[in-house]
């Protein structure tokens, strides 16, 4: 009885303090939002910048207070969505998809294979897809294609981001691609199309370049 009462109190507390949090995600270069026809440092023209942000969790005083159901968001250069959550002071999410969805067969929504983010010759999601032209690339017509994915050891590319975030109106997540692009081996690895050590290296560089801002 006492437990049910406490449970009810907790539920009321959560309901009263639930809030709509607007999540905005952007691909950036050195802090600037990447626009459609941008040329980045080094003359790099990014034609495709797509990535998965998944598994959103919210914490308060170190305890998880909310976990988004079916939390898979495909960001195509930029994306916005809303999550209703109780008060929190920290969030966590992944750049990329968890291993479970990579072995679960056909899925819908942002995970639908028509989104072009699922490999066809090999099973698994492409967690980050960066395509375009780089004057430094030894690829055909200076093209490059970085399809970063892999869910099985030793080539796991999902990257967990955890960040303090004060409970206000919204969260802005910026994935800065330029620190990673500076470290691409344009001679050897202008095309990364499979789970590999290079994919893991680049995915990690991207994960480290994520910034979270509370608004």
């Amino acid at each position: 009885m006492k437990q049910s009462f406490l449970c009810l109190l907790l539920l009321m507390h959560v309901c009263l303090h639930a809030q709509d949090v607007r999540v905005q995600a952007h691909a950036t270069c050195n802090g600037r939002h990447i626009q459609e026809s941008d040329t980045l440092p080094g003359g790099i023209i990014p034609e495709t910048v797509r990535f998965y942000l998944t598994g959103f969790q919210f914490f308060r005083n170190g305890r998880q207070v909310f976990r988004e159901e079916n939390s898979y968001h495909l960001v195509d250069r930029e994306g916005t969505w809303t999550i209703t959550v109780p008060e929190y002071d920290e969030i966590a999410f992944n750049l990329g998809t968890d291993s479970l969805v990579n072995v679960s067969g056909a899925l819908g929504g942002d995970l639908d294979p028509t989104k072009g983010m699922y490999w066809t010759w090999n099973s698994g999601y492409i967690n980050v897809k960066l395509e375009g032209i780089s004057p430094m690339s030894k690829g055909r017509n200076n093209g490059f294609g970085l399809h970063l994915g892999g869910y099985m050891p030793p080539f796991q590319t999902v990257y967990l981001v955890k960040s303090p975030a004060t409970a206000t109106g919204g969260i802005r997540i910026e994935l800065d691609v330029c620190p990673m692009l500076e470290k691409v081996d344009w001679q050897q690895h202008h095309n990364v199309m499979s789970p590999s050590a290079e994919a893991v290296r680049l995915a990690k560089l991207l994960g480290q370049s994520i910034r979270v801002y509370a608004e």
Partner: peptide
């Protein structure tokens, strides 16, 4: 064994 699930086989 490239494909890990019957659903996804047809993509190949």
């Amino acid at each position: 064994g490239a494909v890990n699930h019957l659903d996804m086989q047809a993509l190949a």
